[in-house]
Structure formats: C-alpha cells, structure tokens
Amino acid sequence: MAAIDHYLNSVIQQARLEAFDDGSATLEACHLLLGIAVVGENTELIAAGLGYDQIRAALREEFEHSLQTVGVSAAVYHLPKPTRVGDPPTTLGASAKLAFDRGFARARTKKDLRPVHLLLGILQAEIGTVPRALALAGFDRPALIARLAGDAA
C-alpha cells in the first residue's frame, strides 16, 4: 500500500470517529477536516489558526447560527446526550465525496496524489457547512487555498 493510501486511511478512520461523535450516519467533509486536524498533515491549518478545537468551535457556531436564522436555539433542549454504541459510520456523504473528487482532480495521476490535495478538496467547496463555518469564524479560506495550492503545484 502506498504512503498516500495509509495517509487517507488514517484520516478516514479519524473522520469516522468524528462522525460517530456527532451522531451522523455518514462521513462528511467537516469530519474529514477534523480528521486531518488530528492525524493528518495539519501544519498549514495550524499556521492559519485552524487547530482541532478551533474547527470544532467553528462548526458548532455554524450549526447554531443556521438554526438561529429560523428562530431555533439548539441550547433550549436539555435532553441527555444519546448513548453512542456500535460501529462508526463507513458511508461517505455527499460533501465528503465532492471533497475527494475535487482533491483527486488536482493530481495528474494517482502517483502524484499527496495529503495537501485532500485538504484542498475540502477547502475548495464554496457551499456547505465547512465554508460557512470558516467564514463565520473569520478565517480567510481563499488565502489558505492559495498557500496550499502553491504547495500542491
């Protein structure tokens, strides 16, 4: 197995745990981003102020903000957190599939594929939870993409 396969596998395994913790039935782009922040090549993310805790906080803020736009507060529910048992999800959600497609499209061949391509694939989305979360938290996603694109070239 090539190094990139090991890398992608470890990011996906961590992303599965993040999805499980969220109670999500599918693994989404936001979970891949969290996976990279924990076990992936995260130097550029950290340099941009996007450590695991910052990403989690940004995603939470996006969730609460989106609910507030229709007058709903997530904080009003005080039911105990449901028990999480069983296996973490293995199914890729639509946003994760798009992230892989976009990231892989940046590599000429599979041999050229590197960790930065997956990160770019996630960050390139203009619509969805990740770009909204990063924008709301004040992160300069285009600048990060530009820096990473230089690394990926």
Binding site: S24, F63, L67, T69, V70, V72, A74, R132
Partner: peptide, 10 residues
C-alpha cells in the same frame, strides 16, 4: 438551505 440542513441534524 443551511437552516434546513441544521434543522435535520437537530
């Protein structure tokens, strides 16, 4: 649309 996604999740 983001509200729809968040409401489904909630």
């Amino acid at each position: 649309l983001a509200a729809v996604a968040a409401l489904r999740r909630l």
